[in-house]
Structures are given as C-alpha cells and as structure tokens.
C-alpha cells in the first residue's frame, strides 16, 4: 500500500489553510486515491493523525531552506515520531527534482515572450545562500528577494516578468 501523506504547510493566522492547498488535498484523494492529511505550522493544536499503523511520509511543502525547513520541520517530525507514527521525512518540496522540473517547464513556456525573474522570500543563512545560487543556476533566470526587487531601479529597464516563488498568496 501507498504511504499516507502528511503535508506540512505554512498556513495563515489561527492555522487557516489557503483554498488552493485544500483543493490539492481533495484532488490527491479523489483523482489519485491517496490517503492524505495536512497541517499548518500556524495551528497551535494540530489534530493527531489517525491511520492505524500505516507508514507516513511527512512532506514539507516549503520552497526554500529557511527557518521553517531547518527548525520547525524537524520538531514536527520528532513530535509525530513520539506519537508513535511509523514516519519518514521527505525532502522539502523546493529541493525535489520533479518540482524543479515543473518550475523549469513554466519558465520555458514563458521565455519566448517575456524575460521571467523569480521573486522569493528573503532568506539569509549560509545554507539558504548556497541553495539560492544553485537554484539560479538550474533555472537560468535571475532570482530576487522581494526586498531587493522593490529596491532595484533597473528592473523596469530590464523588463522582467516577476514570478512570485510562493505556493499561495502572501
């Protein structure tokens, strides 16, 4: 049998989850026949996963190795292990090759018409800088943190089309 998927997302205040993520869960259940649950980091009282002794994949739906990936995800992994789940930690989404290929396809489909640039959440650790450099090399388009994007006076001359590197609106 397939692993149960426990998706981990950022969420907004009070543990609320954006409708596009809820629709993702619904489609995984309906179209792919998967057993899925979803948890927001902003939920103070997450429900316990109740799936018997089935194996679980903890899938962090984060795009960059910021503090959520480096600190919060391991904490939640430990909590689920302590609750007795037979659980494996999946790589964070942004480091998973099929996801990067999907983003690359999106960029390629736009490139004949526009010059895309990826606009991301500012992150500052060494790990994050190394990751961003390799991402920029892989996608072969400029990456800007949104604070830098807002300061960059040349962007209009360069005529970039900004692609927000966010799963849901922020």
């Amino acid at each position: 049998p397939h692993y149960h998927l426990h998706l981990l997302v950022h969420g907004s205040r009070g543990g609320e989850i954006h409708p596009s993520l809820l629709s993702l869960v619904d489609q995984l259940k309906r179209l792919k026949n998967r057993s899925v649950s979803i948890e927001a980091l902003t939920d103070d009282n997450p429900e316990q996963i109740d799936i018997g002794n089935r194996s679980v994949f903890l899938v962090p739906l984060f795009l960059l190795p910021g503090s959520h990936v480096c600190i919060d995800v391991p904490k939640i992994f430990n909590r689920l292990q302590e609750e007795g789940q037979n659980i494996k930690l999946f790589p964070f989404l942004g480091s998973f090759k099929p996801w990067l290929s999907l983003i690359d396809d999106l960029i390629t489909s736009q490139r004949p018409f526009v010059k895309p640039a990826l606009i991301h959440h500012p992150i500052s650790s060494d790990t994050a800088s190394v990751f961003l450099k390799s991402l920029e090399k892989f996608l072969n388009i400029p990456l800007y943190s949104w604070s830098r994007w807002n300061q960059d006076t040349f962007k209009k001359e360069k005529n970039y089309l900004p692609i927000p590197y966010l799963l849901t609106p922020n």
Binding site: L24, V36, F90, W99, L102, I163, L166, T168
Partner: peptide, 22 residues
Amino acid sequence: LKSLLEIDIIHRGLVNILGNLP
C-alpha cells in the same frame, strides 16, 4: 500576479508529483 498554486499547470503538476510518491 498569481501565486504558484493558482497557476493551473503548477497545481496539476503538484497533484501528479505528490500522487506518484510511493
């Protein structure tokens, strides 16, 4: 500007990626 999951090919692509996990 749309966030990624509001773009149809990304949404469908992610359903496929996660749906195909073991």
